[in-house]
Design a protein around this nucleic acid. Structure first.
Length: 646
RNA sequence: GCUGUUGUAGCUCAGGGGUAGAGCACUUCCUUGGUAAGGAAGAGGUCGAGAGUUCAAUUCUCUUCAACAGCUCCA
C-alpha cells in the first residue's frame, strides 16, 4: 500500500498504481466527474496516470488554475482533431493553453480559413467532444515519433521532435487524433461542454519573423454554457472600457491622419486631466528632492552617437533633420537621458552634491512600427515623466528604494493595486545586444533584485526584457482586455555615465564615476492615462475629473441662481459647468450621467428660494439638498483625500 | 513590418450595379418642464483614396491608405 497525502493533511492508503481519478471515485462519484487533472508531488499530471509511490495529491478541477489550463490544452487538441477532419493535410505547429483559453497554430497550405468557417469547426468540435473520447498517453521513442510525423508530413512537429531528447517523448491520442505532447490532459473529451472559437490571426512559426506565418486560431471552452455566456458578456463589458472608445466619447484626445499616425492630440478635457496628473507628480517629486529641468525636443545626432542609441536604433528612428549647414544633423529626441547627462556635466560635482535628481516631463518621439500603434498605449510622440538620478555607488540601493516608494505612492494614490513588479534582466545566453561590462551588469542586476526584495515587492523575473544599457524594474498592468503594458519603470545604468564620461570628486579628492538611475513612475503620461481610463471606466476620481460639477437649472427661471452658484464654485476652485439648454431636467441629468460627471446640481425655484443646492452623485442618484457651503466642503474634502470611486 | 478583418453623415450603424438611409449630435421654432431621452422643421455625405471591368461603380476586381485583432518589435 502507498500513502496519499491530501492538501488538508489527511493521509489515505491505496494500492500502488492507483490513479487520481480512482482516488476521486473512492471519495465520491460527483467529485470524480469534476476532476480534470491532478497535482502529484507538485507536478501537474493526467488524472489517469498511475501513482506508484507515497505521494501528495491535489485533485484539480475547474476552479483550479491548473485544472482550467489542462482543460484548455485538451481543447486545443480537440480543435486540432476537428481541423484535421475538416481540412485534411493541415499541419500543426504549437497548441498551448493561455490565460483565457487556448490557441493552435496551423498551416493550411494554400487554403484559407475565415471567421465564418470557425462556426463549422466549432460544430465539429462539439460533435467530437460528445464522443467522450479518452485522452491516451503513450511514451514513444524518438525514432518512432519521427517516423509517425514523417509519414504524416508535418515538418513543424518534426522540427520540435528533433530538439527533444529520446526517452522524453510522449504522444496523446483522443479519438482519431494523435499529437506530440507532454501533457497533461483531461480524462476525456466529454468534459468540454461549451466551445467558442474567438478569432483568427497570423503568428510566426516559433515567434520569429524570419519564419513562415502560420494561422492561429484562438478559442475558449467551458464545462457549461452558463460560464461561456458569462465570459462573453465580460468581454463585451470590457470593450466598453476601452480607452480609445472612452477617449472619443469623453472628448479627451484625438488623432488625425494629417497630423500623423500615433501622434495623439489632447482636447481641452484631456489636457486638463493630464495637467492635474502632472502637477500631482511634480509636487511629490519636489517633495522628494527632485530638481525640475527643461531640455529641447531635438538634439544633435552626435549626442546619440555618444549615448549609443544611434547605433542601436538609428535606422528605426525618425530620421535626422538636416540644416542649411553642411553635415549638421539633429534628431527628434527619442529619450531624455543624454540631455540630462549633458546637464550633469555643466558644473563639476563633489560627492557632497550627490545624488542629483533631474526631473522633466520630456516629450519624446519614437518611430514605432506601424502595426504596433495602439490608442494611447503605443504612440510615436509621448511625454515621459522622466527623471535621472546621478548618485554614488554607495547610494544606489537607497535611491532605488526611494524611487520604489515614490512609484508605490503614485499607484496607491490612484488605487492601482493590480500590477506586477517585473525584474527585467538580460537574455540568459545572448549577450551581444547589450552594451557595458559584465561587471557593471552584475552590479546593476544585483542592486535591483536586492532593492525589490527589501521593499517587499512581489516580483517576477523575466529574461530578455532588459534595456540594451541596463536591467529594469518594470511595473506592469493589464488593460481592459487583459493585454499587459509597462507603466512605471526604474533602471540602474552604469553605462551611460561612462559613455558621457560623467564624474564627481570623491572625499579622496579623486575622480569617480557616478551611477545613473532612470525612472518614470507613470512610464508615459499617454499610456498611464490610457490605463487610468480603463481602470476607472472613464469615471475619474473627483480630483482628476475634467468637469467636477454640472449645474442643471430646471428652467430658465433658475438661470440667474445657476450662474450665481457657478460663480461661487469657481471662486472655490471647483470645476463646474452650466447646462443652460432649453431641455427638460431628465434629459440634462441623463446626459451628465453619460458624460460621467461626478456631481450634478439640480437647481430650481425651490433651491433658489432656500439658497441651497440639490445634489446628485453620478451613478448613485439623489443625495438631497444642502447649503452651497456644505457642498463645497464635501467636494474639497473628496479632492483633498484624492478619494477613489467606490 | 507580417497575417487576417473592416472602412457609408460629427457619432453608432443599415443598405446595395442605375450617383444613398436611420437614430443620436447640430441649426431654427414651439415647449418652462423637478432627478436617465418633450415636439416640429431644417441642414449635413465626390459611400477612405486611386485604377480597372461596365452603357452605368458607392456596390464587382486590383492597388493603396487607415483602423481593428493577433504576431514580430518596444531606448
Amino acid at each position: 500500500m502507498i500513502n496519499i497525502t491530501f492538501p488538508d493533511g489527511a493521509v489515505r492508503q491505496y494500492e500502488p498504481g492507483v490513479t487520481a481519478l480512482d482516488i476521486a471515485k473512492s471519495i465520491s462519484e460527483g467529485l470524480a466527474r469534476k476532476v480534470l487533472a491532478a497535482n502529484v508531488n507538485g507536478q501537474v499530471v493526467d488524472a489517469t496516470r498511475p501513482i506508484m509511490t507515497d505521494s501528495t495529491l491535489q485533485l484539480l478541477t475547474w476552479v483550479d488554475k491548473d485544472g482550467k489550463a489542462t482543460m484548455w490544452h485538451s481543447s486545443a487538441h480537440l480543435m486540432a482533431e476537428a481541423l484535421e477532419a475538416l481540412y485534411p493535410g493541415v499541419k500543426l505547429g504549437y497548441g498551448p493553453s493561455i490565460e483565457n483559453g487556448f490557441y493552435y497554430d496551423i498551416d493550411l497550405g494554400d487554403r484559407t480559413i475565415s471567421e465564418e468557417d470557425l462556426k463549422k469547426v466549432e460544430a465539429k468540435m462539439v460533435e467530437l467532444a460528445k464522443q467522450n473520447s479518452v485522452y491516451v498517453r503513450k511514451e514513444v521513442s524518438k525514432a518512432d515519433a519521427l517516423a509517425y510525423f514523417t509519414e504524416k508530413g508535418d515538418q513543424y512537429k518534426l522540427e520540435t521532435i528533433g530538439e527533444l531528447a529520446d526517452g522524453n517523448i510522449t504522444f496523446y491520442t483522443q479519438g482519431g487524433f494523435t499529437d506530440l505532447c507532454r501533457g497533461p490532459h483531461i480524462p476525456n473529451t466529454g468534459f468540454i461542454k461549451s466551445i467558442k472559437l474567438l478569432s483568427i490571426a497570423g503568428a510566426y512559426w516559433r515567434g520569429s519573423e524570419k519564419n513562415k506565418m502560420l494561422t492561429r486560431i484562438y478559442g475558449i471552452t467551458f464545462p457549461n454554457q452558463k460560464e461561456l455566456d458569462e465570459y462573453l458578456t465580460l468581454i463585451e463589458e470590457a470593450k466598453k472600457r476601452d480607452h480609445r472608445k472612452l477617449g472619443k466619447e469623453l472628448e479627451l484626445f484625438a488623432f488625425s491622419e494629417k497630423v500623423g499616425l500615433g501622434l495623439p492630440m489632447w482636447l481641452p478635457k484631456g489636457a486638463m486631466l493630464r495637467e492635474r496628473l502632472q502637477r500631482f507628480l511634480q509636487e511629490a517629486q519636489i517633495e522628494s528632492g527632485y530638481l525640475p529641468v527643461v531640455t529641447p525636443h531635438i538634439g544633435n545626432k552626435n549626442l546619440y552617437i555618444t549615448s549609443g542609441h544611434y547605433e542601436k536604433y538609428g535606422k528605426d528612428s525618425f530620421q535626422p533633420i538636416s540644416t542649411p549647414e553642411e553635415g549638421e544633423e539633429f534628431m527628434l529626441k527619442p529619450m531624455n537621458c543624454p540631455h540630462h547627462c549633458e546637464l550633469y556635466k555643466v558644473a563639476p560635482k563633489s560627492y557632497k552634491d550627490l545624488p542629483v535628481r533631474f526631473a522633466e516631463f520630456g516629450t519624446v518621439y519614437r518611430y514605432e512600427q506601424h502595426g504596433e500603434l495602439h490608442g494611447l498605449t503605443r504612440v510615436r510622440g509621448f511625454t515621459q515623466d522622466d527623471a535621472h538620478l546621478f548618485c554614488r555607488p554607495d547610494q544606489v540601493k537607497e535611491e532605488f528604494q526611494k524611487v520604489i516608494d515614490l512609484v508605490m505612492y503614485v499607484f496607491n494614490s490612484l488605487s492601482f493595486t493590480e500590477f506586477t513588479a517585473q525584474i527585467s534582466l538580460r537574455h540568459q545566453t545572448e549577450r551581444a545586444k547589450y552594451i557595458g561590462s559584465e561587471e557593471n551588469w552584475e552590479l546593476a542586476e544585483q542592486a535591483i533584485i536586492e532593492s525589490a526584495a527589501e521593499k517587499g515587492l512581489n516580483t517576477v523575473i523575466e529574461y530578455d526584457e532588459a534595456a540594451f544599457y541596463g536591467p529594469k524594474l518594470d511595473f506592469m498592468v493589464k488593460d481592459a482586455l487583459g493585454r499587459k503594458w509597462q507603466l512605471g519603470t526604474i533602471q540602474v545604468d552604469y553605462n551611460l555615465p561612462e559613455r558621457f564620461d560623467l564624474e564627481y570628486i570623491g572625499a579622496d579628492n579623486q575622480k569617480h564615476r557616478p551611477v545613473m538611475i532612470h525612472r518614470a513612475p507613470f512610464g508615459s503620461l499617454e499610456r498611464f492615462i490610457a490605463v487610468l481610463i480603463e481602470h476607472c471606466a472613464g469615471k475619474f476620481p473627483l480630483w482628476l475629473a475634467p468637469t467636477q460639477v454640472k449645474i442643471l437649472p430646471i428652467s430658465d427661471k433658475s438661470q440667474d441662481y445657476a450662474e450665481k452658484v457657478a460663480e461661487l464654485l469657481k471662486k472655490a476652485e471647483i470645476r463646474a459647468e452650466i447646462d443652460d439648454r432649453s431641455e427638460k431636467i431628465g434629459k440634462k441629468i441623463r446626459e451628465a450621467e453619460l458624460a460621467k460627471i461626478p456631481y450634478m446640481l439640480v437647481l430650481g425655484e425651490k433651491e433658489a428660494a432656500d439658497n441651497v443646492v440639490a445634489v446628485r452623485r453620478q451613478s448613485k442618484g439623489d443625495l438631497g439638498t444642502m447649503s452651497l457651503e456644505a457642498f463645497t466642503a464635501l467636494i474639497n474634502e473628496e479632492v483633498a483625500n484624492r478619494k477613489p470611486l467606490e
